[in-house]
């Protein structure tokens, strides 16, 4: 009798346990995958500028609370990106063509993208996610495609051993309506992950070139 009650209780409790976002994802078929790739490519092609806010959360198994930061993101074709952290610290990354400028509080440094391995990868992942080029990067990632009620979800498993040391998987969430990236999850081999969420997006509004200069 007590065992039966226990089983009923467990079933009842399971019913009430909220389902994580991933369990609502269902895999896409081949036609839908091709359609998604085409739409992402088209949207990226037609986007000249993006200005938006971002919030970043790093979830670590060792601490219960998340490490949160937020800031502003600007992208201008062809290769101009401004990634600015405003809270809880001030940190600015500007990529213009192949030059990276960093302003860490008051200190400014400039270097070439290819001279710094970490920034080369960051540049490739952030820009590649937004422009959709990571979806066709078969050399470095194995892509699987899903859909949720609000997003198209692309999971990119890292293939290259070097990159695998720091990132095991990247998950990109494309908005179902406009095919723009609204969330990016970067998973580390140990299970920790960083989630970047893009909000208040403005497309194809003029952004002055000065926004991509650091002095």
């Amino acid at each position: 009798m007590p065992t039966k009650i226990l089983i009923h209780l467990i079933v009842l409790m399971a019913w009430w346990i909220p389902c994580p976002a991933n369990c609502q994802n269902s895999p896409l078929d081949g036609v839908s995958i091709e359609s998604l790739k085409t739409r992402v490519k088209e949207v990226a092609w037609n986007t000249r500028t993006i200005a938006c806010d971002f919030s970043q959360e790093k979830e670590m198994s060792m601490i219960s609370e998340k490490i949160k930061s937020n800031g502003k993101f600007y992208l201008k074709k062809e290769k101009m990106l401004r990634w600015e952290y405003l809270q809880p610290f001030s940190y600015l990354i500007v990529i213009k063509n192949d030059q990276i400028s960093i302003q860490d509080e008051y200190k400014v440094t400039h270097f070439q993208v290819h001279s710094n391995e970490v920034f080369r990868e960051i540049n490739r992942i952030i820009l590649g996610s937004i422009q959709g080029t990571l979806l066709t990067d078969d050399q470095n990632f194995k892509a699987t495609y899903f859909e949720s009620p609000t997003s198209w979800v692309v999971k990119l498993k890292t293939l290259t051993p070097k990159l695998k040391e720091s990132l095991s998987e990247i998950v990109i969430y494309f908005d179902r309506k406009d095919y723009m990236v609204n969330q990016l999850d970067m998973h580390e081999p140990g299970g920790d992950f960083t989630r970047i969420t893009f909000t208040s997006r403005k497309l194809n509004q003029p952004i002055a070139d000065e926004k991509f200069m650091v002095r």
Partner: peptide, 15 residues
């Protein structure tokens, strides 16, 4: 103690 150093984007340098 756990000591974790990561870059601003969240990639771990050492744990």
């Amino acid at each position: 103690y756990r000591i974790v150093f990561m870059n601003e984007i969240g990639m771990t340098f050492f744990d």
